[in-house]
Design a protein around this nucleic acid. Structure first.
Lengths: 349, 349
DNA sequence: ATGAAAGCGCTAACAA
DNA sequence: TTGTTAGCGCTTTCAT
């Protein structure tokens, strides 16, 4: 099957013992420099590749981590996965992706699979639950989560609160006074934080609290579309919508288009995340960037450190967020059946 | 590390030899039925999970396949990956995804990685090259490709030619006479086939061959956008564009929007692939469906069969394609500086 | 139907 | 610095 020579063959060819060869190839002390070079050189010539199964069995160190997610296609997840794969590759770790594939599929199946593999640690992108974690930790599998709702264990997150504040302040400073919010999935930790930022800025700016301007969503485009349609059908519709995430915002854009509204002239839209398509939508989306790729890398690096026995400084690492102003926001226009507001900026507190 | 008992412990608990336990768990002959049931039951109770590294080392059978691709994010690839993962899971195979992550990254790195892992076989989604295959086959790694340009080895493909014909016939039957084509990446096998279908239908329908209506593309949205802009700037612009794939078509939609054209009233657009976003675009895209998920599954199953020593009937499996009519196509309108054509259908030969 | 022996290819722990 | 001795946990082969 595998055509590479074994370590024994390599050692024989080099005229040393198996162990010397092993030490040389793994850069361990205990080999004379000339010998090491000779062996490494010979290994290259002979095309020697260590049998991973044998290494694992003997060392107990698998160099395999798992990436657990609901849907690896979701752009937010895909970005994080990309970062995670990069970090894993840099550490020459294999990464097994455990994505739920069927709509009704149980998370427990994925967990069971993880247990039956050589996975040493897991990065979990499951944002809305923590119940499955017990089975993993029971099997001594280290886990680093992104955004778990309980804020338990090791976790990577972003500064949703301040990102949200920046987004809403941007809208206020453009002159918007009726700013709606489409909230995210209820169980996800960031949802409450983003909403809190929204509400606080509104009250800080002396804008009225209008319950009808807050819609519940679930971070998906169709839901954003539907929520936006409800908002736009209000007697006093908003002039701006701050969506819980970019997918939702894309749904809002769609709804605006369907309603014959121009963005940003008739409606300003802000998203959250800065997924790649956000820059490609029409108009390009103003949004709050989370450094997703970096977060993915950080998650893997944290996991690897944990596996290596290095205690992390803090169990939760929070990344900064940043407002990215693109084409979907502008001062409120005059075309809507809305009392004409000031067209120019109104400084946020 | 791993808390599962070993086979020895399980066997001891069951009061049988290690081998009997092994046979029972692997459903091999040589165990009495009552014993088998007892052992299996006990294994479940004790939470026994075989150590994959040990199994691999002893049996030489890794149950690991690799999925090689340029960009796992591309929707076309993502769909195939999904199917592949499903099939692999059904066969309880681990799947390692080797996706190039950096822009300039060399394919040879990915190949080198594959060689250093326990990968037994590879499904390759590299559509535009075959040079890397030699290194894999030299290491006795089975490969099944999707769409390799040389049509060598085992391969899964779709009926691009007839799909393309159906798309163009649809446009012709709507009354279009100036139908442009944005071709795909030059090196990809499907590009020529789709273009051939386009050209043949045009000449069969007696439509003039106009070189300016054929643009080169590379199956990406930005290129589609740019190509569409060139087409729309022609003195006699097309009333319909058949794009090499959906991403390109999405770029066309964008260009139309930018140019202030309505789709489908002012311009009809047809894509190819039927990636998930095709149904969500505005307007929803008329396209030719390739059963990507199924093709992914088929690729893995073919690979698995090959690994099991079952010779495939044919080295290339071709899947049918199907025209999906959505909202981006309609009879040509009257608003363009184009001689007014018939609004109603004109039967294709 | 069952078990004992041997070994997959490597690393850990000790000895020289 | 080097080599030797033991496994890692399982399957294979061959005996019983």
């Amino acid at each position: 099957m595998r055509s590479s020579p074994t370590l024994d063959e390599l050692a024989a060819a080099a005229g040393v013992s198996r162990m010397t060869a092993s030490r040389a190839l793994n850069n361990r002390p205990g080999v004379s420099e000339p010998n090491r070079e000779r062996i490494v050189q010979l290994a290259k010539e002979m095309g020697y590749i260590a049998n991973p199964a044998a290494v694992r069995l003997a060392s107990g160190w698998t160099r395999v981590i798992g990436l657990l997610c609901i849907d690896m296609d979701a752009p937010f997840v895909a970005e994080i996965v990309k970062g995670a794969l990069r970090a894993a590759r840099a550490a020459s770790c294999e990464t097994l992706i455990y994505s739920l594939l069927e709509p009704g599929e149980e998370l427990r199946n994925a967990v069971a699979q993880i247990l039956s593999r050589s996975t040493q640690g897991v990065v979990s992108l499951i944002l809305h639950r923590t119940d499955y974690l017990a089975a993993l930790t029971a099997a001594h599998i280290q886990v680093v989560t992104l955004e778990n709702p309980d804020r338990t264990g090791y976790s990577i997150t972003a500064d949703h609160y301040n990102g949200s504040r920046a987004a809403v302040r941007h809208l206020v400073s453009l002159g918007h006074r009726r700013i709606a919010h489409i909230a995210g999935h209820e169980k996800i930790a960031s949802t409450a934080e983003r909403r809190r930022g929204y509400e606080e800025v509104l009250s800080e700016c002396g804008l009225p609290r209008d319950r009808s301007l807050i819609e519940k969503g679930d971070n998906t485009q169709p839901t954003g579309f539907a929520a936006a349609q409800r908002l736009l059908a209000l007697r006093a519709p908003p002039t701006a919508i701050f969506a819980s995430n970019d997918s939702t915002a894309l749904g809002v854009l769609e709804a605006a288009q369907t309603a014959g509204l121009r963005v940003p002239e008739d409606l300003s839209v802000v998203g959250f995340d800065d997924i790649p398509v956000a820059a490609l939508s029409y108009p390009p989306l103003t949004t709050v960037r989370q450094p997703m790729e970096q977060m993915g890398r950080s998650a893997v690096n944290t996991l690897l450190a944990l596996l290596a026995g290095v205690e992390a400084v803090s169990p939760v690492i929070t990344f900064p967020t940043e407002l990215i102003i693109r084409g979907s926001t502008a001062p409120p226009g005059r075309r809507r059946p809305d009392r004409a507001g000031p067209h120019r900026r109104k400084k946020a507190r």
